[in-house]
Amino acid sequence: MNMRLFSTLSRSLTVRRQRPALVLPAIPTPRETKQLSDVDDQQDLGEELHPPFPGLEELVFNVPGSNAILHSPLLLIQVTRLQCGGFIFAIRFNHAMADGIGLAQFKIALAEIARGSSAPSVSPVWMRELLIAQDPPRITSSVRHEIDFLPSIIRAQLPPEEDFVRKSFFFGKSEISALRASLPLYLRNKCSDFVVLTACLWRCRIFALQPDPDEEVSVYYTVNARSRFHPPLPIGYYGNALAISGEQTTAGELMKNPYYYAAELVMKSTVRIKEKRFESATDKLSPLGKLPKISLESAYMVSDLTRLGFDEVDFGWGKPVYAGPAAEPIPGISTFHISANNKHGEKGIVVPMSLPGFVMERLSEELKKVVSNSKP
């Protein structure tokens, strides 16, 4: 799986201070206000700088032969200078090399060196042998069906990508507080922002897709497993150390029950995580036979990137305007929670989504209705 991620910063990558120069425009500047991208035209929960980005293929050039997992470049970096004086720092990396935490460590290290450090504050650790499966693999009873999800994504039954419409939804403090306030008291203070948003979007997504009520639907999310092994993985480990957790129900149960039913399911899966499951997951991901296909309706996967620190990376000229994925790795199934500020400076969470056009319209309407009904 190749992923693309970029940051928009406020100056050039090379830290070099010079006397300011006045550059006259070639033609008179139009007397109107232009937003940085047309993403600001969407009338959803927010109107901010976030995916989908127009001209993405120009900002992260698709080098021939770089799409595959094998026999493909592990890392591609492209820096695009903007006429306004800023730049876009784009990374395309092979997910077999590192996870989001490893990529964040790499960007932080690169930024430290750009600012003059002779070495990164956290030295990289490449001890991949720590996660080699046992021989023979041993699966404990605590390993659930959700671990089958990761290898099954290559067999997903999805519509053609050109049929998808991409939108992002911004959830500020008021939206998250309203959703939390709609939960029963016994859940209100136990659920994290991640649980609140994941439950809301999973349920709204099912309403928009309108699958058969008897169809099994699942929500999955990635969990950082670095501290959950014996002994814990060393600080600075760059490789993949993620586990997949999740919960399952039927579409009918999810739609007929209140929103807090979904929140309960998501919260249970976060509480249920045990150390031995992560150790077993390494074995489970070894080839053990055929895996089931997944569909657009049956699977929804979320990764929480709000605490990785992408938005704090400073190459010497300040923090980025936006830092996070440029697109979803599995359109239609996967998404991210990304830290972002809106145009008023309010900090919140952006969630990009890809769905067929008519489904996206229903999702947008359902989200508006749920958030509006939750507000006092």
Rank of each mutant, 00 (worst) to 15 (best):
A199N: 05
A199H: 06
C200L: 10
C200R: 01
C200K: 00
L201F: 14
W202A: 01
R203K: 14
R205N: 10
R205Y: 12
R205L: 11
R205C: 08
R205I: 02
A208W: 02
L209W: 06
Q210F: 14
Q210C: 13
P211F: 01
P211I: 04
D212T: 01
D212H: 04
D214A: 12
E215T: 12
S218L: 08
S218D: 14
S218E: 15
V219E: 00
V219R: 01
V219H: 00
Y220P: 08
Y221V: 07
Y221L: 13
T222R: 02
T222K: 05
V223S: 07
V223G: 07
V223Q: 03
A225T: 04
R226C: 05
R226M: 11
R228D: 06
R228K: 06
F229C: 04
H230P: 07
P232T: 02
P234I: 00
P234N: 02
G236W: 01
G236N: 06
Y237A: 13
Y237W: 11
Y238L: 12
G239L: 07
N240R: 00
A241W: 00
A241T: 03
L242P: 02
I244S: 10
G246S: 11
E247L: 11
E247I: 08
E247C: 14
A251Y: 02
E253Q: 11
L254W: 04
L254K: 03
M255I: 12
K256Y: 15
K256R: 12
K256D: 11
N257Y: 08
P258V: 10
P258A: 07
Y259W: 06
Y261K: 05
A262R: 01
A262F: 01
A263D: 03
E264Q: 15
L265D: 02
V266T: 05
V266S: 05
M267E: 12
M267D: 15
M267W: 11
S269H: 01
S269T: 01
S269V: 04
V271W: 09
V271F: 10
R272L: 15
R272Y: 13
K274L: 12
E279G: 15
S280Q: 01
S280L: 05
A281C: 09
T282Y: 02
T282C: 14
K284H: 11
K284Y: 13
L285N: 11
L285V: 07
L285H: 10
L285I: 04
L285S: 08
P287R: 07
P287N: 06
L288P: 00
G289A: 07
G289P: 08
K290H: 14
L291N: 08
L291K: 10
K293Y: 08
I294E: 12
I294N: 00
I294L: 13
S295L: 06
S298K: 04
S298P: 08
S298Q: 05
Y300A: 10
Y300P: 04
M301S: 14
M301Y: 13
V302M: 02
S303K: 00
S303V: 03
L305E: 12
L305R: 09
T306Y: 00
L308S: 03
G309A: 13
F310M: 11
D311C: 13
D311F: 12
E312A: 15
V313F: 05
V313I: 13
D314I: 09
F315G: 12
F315I: 05
F315W: 03
G316V: 04
G316N: 00
W317R: 14
W317Q: 09
G318A: 05
P320E: 00
V321P: 11
A323R: 12
